[in-house]
Design a protein around this nucleic acid. Structure first.
Lengths: 171, 171
DNA sequence: TATTTACAGGACCGGTTTGGTCCGATATCT
DNA sequence: AGATATCGGACCAAACCGGTCCTGTAAATA
């Protein structure tokens, strides 16, 4: 279905939770799981990954838990995805050279790299801080603008009707 | 790794190949596989899907094969992904309501829908016609512009340094 | 120091998806 | 009739995903 894995999805929710309750006191896995309505072992596993990758700092023992290692505004969606899911890129060849054996034959590599660039940029422009401001963040008006501009005439003067009849699928 | 499946990847390459050699004569699976350096059975399977979903028209028997059902400029990347991969959306809740059991608790739903919207728009703006013009298509200068604008100051006045130290991963 | 709390680092597992092959049936051209 | 291709589907191994669990270790507290 072209979507993020649940691990990434949950991870971002957890980071948002941590950012919202940011304080000097770390939050532990159990609390975070309860606040997000997610199973504790899963949450624990994800938090461990985030800590290992440097997005969180952890403190062990009693009164231990996790805290953000960065200011929310310094952590982009793209960063979070990279850490939890791996490099961002729609195709292998968009991530780096020499990853795809068909590179020499493939005629659509450069276009893909540009498209991937746009997607990655969109994910880089939104930060954790934007996520926790309930849509009041200024970025979202910008996003809405971009969507309108692009949808109207930024790229193409006559917006083509989408080839509608494509049947619904269910996978 | 947050990427498209190989089926989708190959499918788009095949569509590009079909668009490039567009003529009155249909092209068969074997020819297309050879031109794209991909295994014939796999190509055949993908072409069948594309035909069933209405992106290609097929002709059986001798001198049979496949032809595009649409003008290249009327087929967007988003359409192709939808057909081969399913609905486009970074998270379940970005695709439609009532798909995620955490919807009532989740605090980042609206932001995700907007982010997904941007990504989907980017994929909708590029068409099959753009893919086969070797980067000479006007859209790519637009894309380059968008990337520059966004990277510079469209969203945020002081571009933050990305939190670099995140270790490389290999999954 | 003993106890409790909580992260660290794994192994592990069932189920689904993915990438890929193969086959019989059917349609079309010569 | 025979050759050529798609159609529809079964089939399979391997990878991946979501999720659990267990042992070890660090920190706080009593």
């Amino acid at each position: 279905m072209f979507k993020l894995s649940k691990t990434t999805d949950y991870g971002i929710v957890l980071l948002a939770q941590l950012a919202r309750n940011a304080s000097t006191e770390p939050q532990n896995a159990r609390e975070l799981a309860a606040a997000s309505d997610l199973p504790v072992p899963m949450v624990s596993k994800i938090l461990k990954t985030l800590a290992k990758e440097g997005l969180l700092v952890s403190r062990r023992g009693s009164k231990g838990g996790y805290q953000l290692a960065f200011e929310p505004k310094d952590l982009s969606i793209a960063d979070m995805i990279r850490v939890l899911e791996g490099p961002v890129g729609l195709t292998e060849c968009a991530i780096g050279p020499a990853l795809c054996v068909h590179e020499t034959v493939c005629a659509v590599r450069e276009p893909w790299q540009l498209i991937s660039g746009v997607v990655e940029q969109a994910l880089t422009d939104v930060t954790l801080a934007d996520l926790i401001h309930d849509g009041t963040s200024p970025i979202f008006s910008s996003v809405r603008n971009i969507l309108q501009i692009e949808g109207r005439d930024a790229f193409r003067s006559d917006p083509v009707a989408s080839p509608a009849p494509l049947a619904d699928r269910d996978h």
